[in-house]
Each structure stands twice: as structure tokens, then as C-alpha cells.
């Protein structure tokens, strides 16, 4: 992004609002292992303790406990960490796969383009959850399968962006000039096409990150995500639904955590889009 665009982005008050929320939340996710209480340690004398309880053993539960007396603060921090890490890993795969396929399709056209467009079209028609059900149903739920499923279905928007831009730039004079100067194809692609799509990719990547976090949470809620005992926000929420009438906090707090995280990401994506294309 150029200096003026960056300045426009930074002057937007919503940018700062989003960052004020997002930076501490991401820091909490990454630093979760430093929290002194284990997310799986049980305190059977303090089960279903409401937020702000001090148990008989003297432990203080800021956000309460679940049916096994596990500290909800610790579980939410670790669940947040799983959401952020799985989302980031899936996003990296999606960006790499989408960029590569988009460059290939846009540059070579013809049969390569047809195959990539066909794959994009297939993925755009089908609900992500249905594909995930097919894949996870066959391979079983594990963190690796989850990340691969999210990553290998989330590349479509990046491929479309990169393909369109590559197609457009292929005939531009400066790319033709590079060709005339004998720059080989990979060099041309990387040096001339990628910088031109980078701002749009940043906007799309931010919004896609939010979508991937929500998708991961949905699959975990269905029991198809990261398997237990690793806490996930979707998993904690699903477990808490059973105790809704006696312990509202177990199901309520993971959803709020997700909402805060994804809203901050989406507002940030919005401000980036406003700055990139006013």
C-alpha cells in the first residue's frame, strides 16, 4: 500500500477502535499457556461455580467453572488460542494455494484456466460445512484434517482476485516490456503481478480470517473440529448448552469471545477496504 492510502487507513477512527480490541485479544490467545491454571484441571468441590466464585480450596474463578469444575477463564483463553492458530494456519494455506492457482490460471489461460475455474465453481456452489462433513466423515476429526479442510476450501476468493489481476496485467506494457527484456515467467509474475494485487489480498485475507475462525467454531460446535481434551470455543459452547438452565455462563462466554474477536477482525477488514478503494 502506498503512503497516502496507509495514512487514510490510519486516520479512520474505526481502525484504531478495531486495533484496540484486536491486539489484546490476539496477545491473550498467543500468551494463553502462561495463564497459571490448566484448562483441564478439575476442582470437583467447585463445579458449575458462577463467575466471581472463590472455592472452598481458595481458588478464585473469575469467569466461573464448568460441570467438572474446570476454570472457564483458562478454557476460554486456550479455546481462543486454538481458534486463532487454526484460523491463521488455514488462512496461510488458502493464500498460498489461491495465489498459485490464480497466477497459473491468469497467466496460461486455456486448459489450466478451465480446470481452476471448474474447481472454483465447484467450491462456490457447495456449502463449506457439507464439504467438511464429507472430508471429516471419511478421515475422522483431527486438527490436521481440520486445518487442511479449511485451507483447501478457503482459497477461492484469493484465486479469483489473483487470476483477474494477472489476466489484466498480462497485456500491460510494463509486463510486455519485461518479457521483451527476457525476464522469465516466474520472475515476471512475482515481481509485477503480486505487488498489484497485494492491497486487495490484504482486505480479502482479513475478512477471510474472520470467516475461517467462525467456520472452525461451527465445526467444533458440531463435534467435527479439534478433538477434546483441547478446549475450543465451539466445543465449550456445545458442552454448555446442556447446562443452560443452571449455568448460563458456560455457553454464553465462548460465544461472546468469538463475537468480539470476529467483529474486530471484520471492522479492520472494512477499514482496509475503505482505504484501498475509497
Amino acid at each position: 500500500m502506498r503512503g497516502r492510502t496507509l495514512q487514510r487507513w490510519w486516520r479512520n477512527p474505526r481502525t484504531k477502535a478495531a486495533l484496540v480490541v484486536l491486539v489484546p485479544v490476539l496477545a491473550a490467545a498467543l500468551l494463553a499457556p502462561l495463564y497459571p491454571v490448566s484448562p483441564t484441571a478439575q476442582d470437583l468441590r467447585a463445579t458449575l461455580a458462577p463467575p466471581g466464585t472463590t472455592s472452598a480450596s481458595g481458588a478464585f474463578y473469575l469467569l466461573g467453572t464448568d460441570e467438572l469444575g474446570r476454570d472457564l477463564t483458562a478454557r476460554l483463553l486456550h479455546g481462543l488460542r486454538a481458534s486463532v492458530l487454526v484460523g491463521a494456519a488455514a488462512l496461510s494455506i488458502a493464500v498460498v494455494v489461491g495465489t498459485t492457482l490464480g497466477l497459473l490460471a491468469g497467466w496460461f489461460g486455456g486448459a489450466v484456466d478451465s480446470v481452476v475455474t471448474g474447481a472454483t465453481e465447484t467450491l462456490m456452489t457447495l456449502p463449506f460445512i457439507l464439504l467438511a462433513i464429507a472430508v471429516i466423515g471419511a478421515l475422522g476429526a483431527s486438527t490436521t484434517v481440520l486445518i487442511l479442510t479449511l485451507g483447501l476450501t478457503g482459497w477461492v476468493s484469493f484465486a479469483k482476485l489473483v487470476r483477474a489481476k494477472t489476466f489484466e496485467l498480462r497485456n500491460e506494457e510494463f509486463v510486455q516490456a519485461a518479457h521483451a527484456l527476457g525476464v522469465r515467467t516466474p520472475g515476471k509474475l512475482v515481481r509485477h503481478v503480486l505487488p498489484n494485487v497485494a492491497p486487495l489480498m490484504l482486505v480479502d485475507g482479513t475478512l477471510q480470517f474472520g470467516a475461517l475462525v467462525l467456520a472452525e467454531a461451527g465445526l467444533s460446535f458440531l463435534g467435527l473440529g479439534v478433538p477434546p481434551p483441547t478446549p475450543t470455543l465451539g466445543g465449550i459452547l456445545a458442552g454448555g448448552q446442556v447446562f443452560l438452565a443452571v449455568a448460563w455462563w458456560i455457553a454464553t462466554l465462548p460465544g461472546l469471545t468469538l463475537l468480539v474477536l470476529v467483529l474486530a477482525i471484520n471492522v479492520l477488514g472494512d477499514t482496509l477496504r475503505d482505504a484501498a478503494a475509497p
Binding site: 474472520g210 467462525l214 467454531a217 461451527g218 460446535f221 465451539g234 459452547l237 456445545a238 455457553a251 465462548p254 460465544g255 461472546l256 468469538l258 463475537l259 470476529v262 467483529l263 477482525i265 471484520n266
Partner: peptide, 8 residues
């Protein structure tokens, strides 16, 4: 609304 998980 777009940022809220549907199951929540």
C-alpha cells in the same frame, strides 16, 4: 450480525 456465530 455477520460477526456473530449462528449457534451462539
Amino acid at each position: 450480525g455477520q460477526s456473530t456465530p449462528v449457534f451462539w
